[in-house]
Nucleic acid binder design. Structure first.
Lengths: 152, 152
DNA sequence: ATAATTCTGACCATGACAGTCGGGATTCTC
DNA sequence: GAGAATCCCGACTGTCATGGTCAGAATTAT
């Protein structure tokens, strides 16, 4: 029951795009520098995010990526779904599940449990938007500008 | 974000033990027959469940496994944890996490999110007990004893 | 032209997952 | 005591996802 670091990286990248929203595209080279993540890997993730419709790209010298819509309209669930696929604890509760694929379907007592679990996860992830993550970050930054002298 | 079928198998095995609770040990051969799961694989899982303290074993001819406590005192979270380890979307919110391991800790805005997610998952899984799963199953069975002639 | 960028596909190493196998230890039954 | 049923354990294996790297092509600003 864990989120891949792939998705985690993707989310970090998206928060950088969110911070830069409105100020032109942000290159993944910048993201890699700020977040200390491998550039070549981010390239792949950025492509996925673009194909998923969350960002749009500009090529060439001052190119980069930018969110396709404001940060408060992109949830963490959106990001995770694009990168990891649908959140689903077991196959039989996922969206594209074909009824009858699992022959134990009729007598399966745990399916209700898994559906509750999925709903619960979806709820948490869809309630949080990139805008909130950015806001939280700013708050943290303003509270502790210099970690070594916290009580200043 | 998914539960391994390993954990799923483990849970199915545990519900069988729950059904047999109080009537002597149940062999994994029986479990394999009832649930249509590979016997050799179940052996491994059963060992893990025993080491995790959820079941106790009896060797020899009429041996098998039995829950160490009543089914209403074993949650799904107990089972999943024993088999998959602690439920934790990212390392930095797990129980044994050593403060400072993640150098981005201070400035990490998403940690709060992951903690909420973990709590949400834990809540769902710990609220459901094996006893409830068994009860749900009985309900299902009583409603549809013969699928081909449902209205009898 | 050249430098900065995105875009794409191929490649790779590692580990988890799902499962098998062989054989040993224990205990009941006859 | 022999045999059968059962748990116990470690080793092995094939497949797949993860977490990357790399080389080069396409595009665009300067």
């Amino acid at each position: 029951m864990r989120v891949s670091s792939k998705a985690h990286y993707g989310l970090r990248m998206m928060t950088e795009f969110a911070k830069a929203y409105g100020a032109g595209p942000l290159s993944i080279a910048e993201v890699a520098r700020i977040e200390h993540l491998p550039l070549a890997y981010l390239e792949q993730l950025a492509s996925q995010l673009r194909r998923g419709g969350l960002v749009e790209s500009t090529r060439g010298v001052h190119g980069g990526y930018a969110l396709t819509r404001p940060a408060d309209q992109i949830s963490v669930l959106n990001v995770v779904t694009v990168i990891e696929g649908e959140v689903s604890p077991v196959e039989c509760v996922s969206h594209g599940y074909v009824t009858g694929t699992c022959q134990r379907e009729g007598e399966c007592a745990s399916r209700g449990l898994w559906m509750r679990l999925k709903q619960s996860i979806d709820a948490v992830l869809s309630q949080t938007t990139l805008a909130e993550l950015v806001a939280d970050q700013s708050l943290i930054d303003s509270m502790a500008p210099a970690p070594a002298e916290a009580s200043r």
